[in-house]
Simulated assay, not measured.
Amino acid sequence: MQLSLGLWRSPLESVRDALLCEFGPQRPVARMDPISQLVKSSISGRTPDAVSWGAFLRLRAEFRCWEDLARTPDAQVLEIIGDVACAEDKARHLTHALRLIEQKVGWLSLNHLAGRPVDEARWELQSLPGVGVKVAASVLNFSSLAMRALVVDTHVHRVARRIGLVGSGDTTLAYQALMRLAPGSWTADDLFELHWLMKRGLGQMLCPDQAPSCGACPLKHDCAKLGIGHSAEVLPWRPRGA
């Protein structure tokens, strides 16, 4: 039993290795400060990357600093980010969240989270309006905080279910399940890389919501074994040969 435990390999390692062979490394080139990442991630939900980046760049061009954004009427913010999904709610939540950070910290900064345990920092972020587990993980992992949190967006959640890494449940349950599978030796950069491999490489290019290209998928053998891709039912992951 001790030998088998010592040889156990997380399925996330196999997924990452297969996707790396197909799509190559996806390491971060530059990281924004945590507040900028919060602004970007808060307007990105259910919105194509090109659209959310456009809205974010318009915000940066409009305001001298994020403190100015925090004091801007919601209607004015809405005019700038109007093409993102749920823009009215995001405009209201974003300015409110920024003001709450100022009130709690004393100034507009999230740098204090660097010294916190990951889950404690995540819960602090999730106490802000409009911030769920995906936005919180994005701030922790994508920003200069560079903390061990996997960003589970719609694409990552979908493909994780299809290949049997997670079962039914919401994004929070999927995040918790995938973080339990993440090897302790993995760094923030490793989790960043896994996110982009699963999102852009697998989720957007090969395994979209409709008509996945199963024949070209580097994980097709696992999917075939588990019956994924042809059924709405997702079976729990099990090692090859089990």
Rank of each mutant, 00 (worst) to 15 (best):
P28E: 00
E124D: 15
L235M: 01
P25E: 08
M1Q: 09
P129L: 10
T154Y: 07
D209H: 12
W237V: 00
F142D: 03
S144D: 12
G229N: 05
R58A: 13
M147A: 05
A242K: 08
I80F: 04
D190E: 05
P129H: 10
H96D: 15
D33Y: 09
W53G: 07
R200Y: 05
L100D: 04
A70D: 11
C86K: 09
A50F: 10
P129K: 08
A87E: 00
A182N: 00
V151D: 01
P129S: 07
W53F: 12
W196F: 14
S4W: 13
P48A: 13
C86S: 08
W237Y: 12
H96Q: 15
R180M: 09
A50Y: 10
V166T: 02
G164F: 00
E79Q: 15
N141I: 04
F23Q: 01
E79C: 13
L128F: 14
D33V: 09
P34R: 02
L57G: 01
V84R: 02
Q176D: 09
S143R: 11
L145A: 10
Q126V: 13
L206V: 02
L57S: 10
A61Y: 11
N141G: 00
L181P: 00
R200C: 00
P208H: 03
A146K: 13
G164M: 00
Q103E: 14
E193K: 05
W8Q: 11
A137W: 03
S143Y: 08
A30S: 13
H195A: 07
A177N: 07
V105W: 06
R122V: 01
S138V: 03
S42H: 12
G229F: 01
P212W: 01
R122N: 02
V118T: 06
G184V: 03
L128V: 14
L206C: 04
L38T: 03
V152Y: 04
A216G: 10
V133P: 00
S127E: 15
R16N: 03
E88T: 13
K90R: 12
G130V: 10
G45T: 11
G203V: 06
I163W: 05
W107R: 14
